[in-house]
Write a protein that binds this DNA or RNA. Structure first.
Lengths: 116, 116
DNA sequence: CAGCATCCTTATCGATACTG
DNA sequence: CAGTATCGATAAGGATGCTG
C-alpha cells in the first residue's frame, strides 16, 4: 500500500504542491536551479519575463514545500543563494525532462498551429 | 544543430505551448488522456475541480497545438472522443512522470510544510 | 452529451517606489 | 543586492442557463 496522494483530486494536498511546481513560474525556476545554486538576480536573469515580485513569491512557495533551499549569507550587500533540495532535485529533473520533451515536439506544434 | 526553441525566453513560441501544458488544467488533462481516449464527461470526472468551461478551453488549446485529437462522431446525442496525438503522447508521458515524482516527494513536502 | 454565452467575482501579475 | 509594499489593470475562473 502507499501513495495516498493524487493530484487529480481537487482537495488532495499534493494538488497545491503540483500547482506551485507547474504554476506559471515554478517549473521555470526549478529548471533554472537544476543547473546549480544561483543567486536571486541570476535566477531572475535566467527566467525570461519574471518580475522581482513573482520570483520572490515563487521561491518562497517552493521553499515552504521543501523543494528549494535558501541560504542567506547575512552580509551587506546581501548575498543569498538558492538551490534545490534533494527532493527538489528529483522534481527539477522531471521538469527538465518535460521541458526537453516540449522542445522536441515544437516543430509539430508549430505546424499544427499553422493549420497543418 | 538545432533546438531554436527555449521556454526560458519570454518571447519564444515554445513558451505559449509550455503554458498550455503547464497551465492550471493542461497537464492534468493530458495526464488523464494518457490512459487512453476519453469522452468529454469522462475527462471532466477524471480531473477533479475542472469546470465545463475550463475543460473546453483547455482541450481547444491543446488541440490547436496538435497535442490532442478531437473526434466528433456527429451523432445525437453527441459523442466526442478526445485522445492524445503522437506528439501529445510524448508530452503526456513526461507529465505522468512528473506527477509520479510529485507523489513520491509528497511526504517530504508535507513535513517541510509542517515546519520540519 | 457536449458544449457555448453571459455575467461576475477573484486572483494573478506587472509597474513603481522604497528599504537595509 | 535582495528583497518588500502598495496599487491598479487584466485575466482566469466559477456559476448559471441554454442549445442541437
Amino acid at each position: 500500500m502507499e501513495q495516498p496522494f493524487d493530484v487529480f483530486s481537487a482537495n488532495c494536498p499534493s494538488r497545491a504542491a503540483w500547482e506551485h511546481v507547474t504554476g506559471r513560474w515554478g517549473a521555470l525556476v526549478l529548471g533554472a536551479l537544476a543547473d546549480g545554486p544561483m543567486r536571486f538576480g541570476a535566477v531572475r536573469r535566467a527566467v525570461g519575463g519574471v518580475s522581482d515580485r513573482m520570483l520572490s513569491q515563487t521561491l518562497q512557495a517552493l521553499e515552504r514545500d521543501g523543494l528549494v533551499h535558501r541560504e542567506d549569507h547575512g552580509t551587506n550587500p546581501p548575498h543569498v543563494e538558492y538551490s534545490v533540495t534533494p527532493a527538489g532535485r528529483r522534481v527539477a529533473d522531471s521538469v527538465v525532462a518535460l521541458v526537453e520533451t516540449i522542445h522536441d515536439v515544437m516543430p509539430t506544434v508549430m505546424s499544427a498551429r499553422a493549420g497543418a
